[in-house]
Design a protein around this nucleic acid. Structure first.
Lengths: 236, 236
DNA sequence: GAAATTAATATGTATGCACATAATAATCCT
DNA sequence: AGGATTATTATGTGCATACATATTAATTTC
């Protein structure tokens, strides 16, 4: 019974991953320590090295292992757990919560960006910008207010789009996927957005600022403020 | 020149991924459409199917493609971009920001959990709980206030640990890695935490509630409130 | 003895093949 | 025709092998 070791004796990469994970959890493989190399593990599990590689690679991306060529694989001292955050797509999120989604375009015009926006988008000064303000509602209740700046030099096509039906975000996500970007969020008072979010000006709201790029060219800066009651949820 | 196609004519899975990505971006592969199957793509790129598989798998986990056996691979209508959020490890975060880190244990005692905590941890009522409150500082300035409940039935060992030096989180991360959990964050007023965070009671702060589990057993609920000036940053 | 060169090693990835699995399409039977 | 059975198909994964690449360790050279 050598050749026919199919799905029977052979271990799946998931089961190997789980076994290694159990050893980490039980501290058989202690924090900071090297674990056996792929060849040895493959021998132990009676599988191909590629299978062990897949398992260890998975644990490395999950943040439990550190791997370096020649240096080997070691258990992270402080496992930096990673959660996958799906970038909010307001329409989908609202609908998924079982509510009716509504989108209202509040304003759309060419405008000069304030210094803070210019800095975030690293603008030289000559770029043409479109500013779009919108309100997103869930079951007729204000859910999120968005104040967005779009760099027309990077995505000129959006100038001809009717943004009263489709939100700028939805168009951009489909038509101009970014290569990279940054996101930051923080708490602040509602301030002037209170009228849109139907709350008091000094109510605390969570604001998210997202800046996205197409290679070196800035696409857009979106500042989204959620209604005070909103909670962002995430599975680990 | 058939057999010797080594690193020369053969494409790497990253380059194939990038090529496919470019086609999605250029809408050569339009949203919602099927793309060629792995065998055809492998033929086109002159590589093995496994290599194409790796590339497509990567794009699927990034959220650009949907893959189903027999059904094939299609471009997502609304690419749900995913960002990797590293769970905050306060000590590491503060030090990485170039500041001096300090940790202060404020309180540590057995306590009865309020209904909200009981609900989050799905407690039956008989569990023994440890409550730990702590303050984390960056360059002597309050950075984050933590109010944590630990289920002693799940992690009894922590009862013997001196939490004046090591924070509960650091011990738990090392000694009792969770299998899964939930995280939610929102904005609220500082309230009673104002004295610890050195701000006004009605200042907006960002609060994160994290609940973690070891399989079916609840480990801990941590409520962390950051100083008003704090911004959570994330790369996309 | 310090610097440069060379060897050794663990992971990273590509190939060709085989079989597993899920989902759809085609066919058969009554 | 309708429901159950049987192909068919695309992705998922495993294996053995080979070579690539990054690092570290050993060795040589000056």
């Amino acid at each position: 019974m050598g050749k026919e070791g199919k799905a029977d004796s052979s271990a799946s990469w998931q089961s190997i991953r789980d076994t290694i994970m159990a050893r980490i959890r039980a501290q058989d493989y202690a924090p900071g320590e090297l674990i056996p190399n792929e060849v040895d593990l493959a021998a132990e599990f009676g599988c191909a090295r590629a299978t062990v590689n897949r398992a260890l690679r998975d644990l490395a991306t999950t943040g439990f292992l550190d791997r370096r060529r020649k240096a080997g694989t070691r258990v992270r001292e402080a496992p930096r757990r990673k959660a996958t955050l799906a970038i909010p797509l307001t329409r989908a999120d609202v609908i998924a919560s079982g509510a009716r989604y509504e989108y209202r375009l509040l304003e759309r015009k060419r405008d000069m960006p304030p210094p803070l926006v210019r800095e975030h988008l690293k603008l030289s000064g000559s770029e043409r910008l479109l500013r779009v303000q919108s309100l997103h509602l869930a079951d007729d209740v204000p859910h999120m207010f968005e104040d967005r700046w779009i760099v027309l030099d990077t995505v000129p096509d959006i100038e001809d789009i009717d943004l009263t039906e489709t939100s700028a975000n939805e168009w951009l996500v489909r038509q101009a996927p970014y290569t990279h970007g940054t996101m930051e969020f923080f708490a602040e008072t509602a301030g002037g957005r209170a009228q849109h979010l139907v709350c008091a000006p000094d109510d605390p709201v969570m604001t998210m600022i997202r800046v996205t790029w197409l290679e070196a060219a800035p696409i857009t800066l979106a500042q989204q403020s959620y209604s005070p009651s909103h909670r962002m949820r995430l599975d680990l």
